[in-house]
Design a protein around this nucleic acid. Structure first.
Lengths: 151, 151
DNA sequence: TTCAAATTTGAATTGAATCCAAATTAATGT
DNA sequence: ACATTAATTTGGATTCAATTCAAATTTGAA
């Protein structure tokens, strides 16, 4: 009971915080947009459009997939969400303010976050080109699959 | 006349070299495969499947797009070609043995090669994950577009 | 030459992403 | 409150890269 109450109030505080972030970016925080933003905030598994759509559809039965696409493209344009193309077939979306890298496991296909320890130079000018955005994509075998291999 | 002759013999030398590379990788160097490999070797502009197909079709009218897809996937599996997903909509292919980064210009949409000066750590184990492949995707404004801006 | 395996081909299919016009909702002015 | 305009959402249709698959062709071995 106590825990549930606390959790609910936390959720509410969070929602208003997220609303503020959207407003600060000049994005009207509509019901759908806030729901999608909240989903991204709570699910750091680099979800696909379909995952977001299927999950939110249960609560918002009228939700359209086009709205999910529209909203995510808007978020990307405003810079609060990143689109990952490490998956060859479909885009994945990521809300993460801290700089980090992505590793795709070739075994389990999961995309892991790697805390970036500034291992990559933070120049903003390389060979005369102005660098605005950096993404490091790693491919390999994740530690959980490595453990399974050993057995 | 002299130049043409020289160029032809160079092309021949090159072709047999490329054939050897394929054989060394356990790839039967069929006419189509060799043509696709040669195209990648000569065109470092990160071509799409369609670009490769349209160009080679003029010399090989019976060429099928599926063959291009099959061949490129085979090359990737054998590790002599890299597939770039920096473009959000379509795959681009790259034959380049030397380590390098890719920069996509947000203005002219071109993908530039950046000579990698080992600016990224070459660990093969990060946070317990085994790293097999690294790709650094940069986005920004290329030097040629920056020059145009200044005028 | 003959037969089996490898390779190529093109039509059909899949599915992520976009387009677009209509419907709905929110914002503004009177 | 009401009307009018703008912003947002919706779903069906469309696009197009990529894959599937069975048939045709080519290659290699016996």
């Amino acid at each position: 009971m106590e825990v549930k109450k606390l959790k609910m109030s936390m959720t509410n505080v969070l929602k208003s915080d997220l609303k503020k972030i959207l407003l600060d970016c000049g994005i009207q925080p509509s019901f759908q947009r806030l729901a999608i933003f909240e989903y991204l905030y709570q699910h750091d598994v680099h979800p696909t459009v379909d995952m977001i759509y299927r999950s939110l559809s249960r609560d918002i039965p009228t939700l359209s997939k086009t709205t999910v696409y529209n909203t995510l493209n808007l978020f990307i344009k405003k810079g609060i969400v990143t689109g990952l193309t490490i998956e060859e077939n479909e885009m994945r979306y990521d809300y993460n303010v801290k700089p980090h890298l992505h590793l795709k496991c070739t075994k389990c296909k999961k995309i892991w976050d790697i805390k970036c320890d500034a291992s990559f130079s933070n120049l903003n000018l390389i060979e005369g080109h102005r660098i605005l955005e950096k993404q490091v994509y790693l491919k390999g075998i994740c530690r959980s699959c490595l453990k399974k291999q050993k057995k």
